[in-house]
């Protein structure tokens, strides 16, 4: 199939897989450690004698193992998501593939794309990544999924309802992909209804 651009020419950065686990560690890891330290201080002040060093070491190691386990679990999940996600800018349709176990494909006619958004959150800024969000006016990509659209972006990768997200692009790649899609929207728009609805 001849495609102008795809997930091979515009790959999702490998660093992207670290984003979620890092975010998790930043959010909850520090929170856990804070609580543990607080409890240790409380116990120390109650019993009024120095806290055994071995206990502190044990708790630290235990916590590290738990956090590492969580980190690894999320990392593997994100890795699989990334590995199973693909897109290609075809002749008439924008084709997305996703799904680790149950596979899904979205075929998006260029004329139906409503708007294109490029966003970055804090971790994206740190890792130098860009999210490309493509939206059409479909209410959902399957039954029973509409309720999830209440949140702003239900997903970090892939498509859901009317939104498709390609994360982990470099600045140049995201700009280039945006230009390609905008150009396709212009040349491949529906003849009888240019509103895309």
């Amino acid at each position: 199939m001849n495609s102008v651009a795809s997930s091979i020419t515009h790959p999702i950065s490998f660093f992207w897989t670290f984003k979620k686990p890092l975010g998790f560690i930043c959010m909850y890891g520090l929170f856990f450690i804070g609580i543990i330290i607080f409890v240790l201080i409380l116990i120390a002040s109650e019993t009024n004698k120095p806290f055994p060093i071995s206990m502190i070491a044990f708790i630290t190691i235990f916590l590290t193992i738990i956090l590492a386990f969580i980190f690894l679990t999320i990392f593997i999940f994100e890795y699989l998501l990334r590995k199973n996600f693909g897109f290609s800018v075809g002749e008439d349709f924008f084709i997305f593939n996703q799904g680790i176990i149950s596979k899904e494909q979205k075929n998006l006619p260029y004329g139906a794309i409503q708007n294109i958004i490029i966003t970055q959150d804090i971790l994206d800024r740190i890792l130098g990544l860009h999210n490309l969000v493509i939206e059409n006016a479909a209410s959902s990509g399957g039954l029973g999924m509409v309720y999830k659209q209440n949140s702003k972006y239900p997903l970090s990768i892939g498509f859901y309802g009317n939104t498709a997200i390609i994360p982990g692009l470099t600045k140049d790649n995201s700009e280039e992909l945006k230009k390609i899609i905008l150009n396709k929207m212009k040349t491949k728009s529906f003849n009888d209804d240019r509103s895309g609805l």
């Binding site: 708007n115 490029i118 966003t119 970055q120």
Partner: peptide, 11 residues
Amino acid sequence: TPKEITIPWER
């Protein structure tokens, strides 16, 4: 956290 939106006039 930059957000950039591009909208074609027809839409």
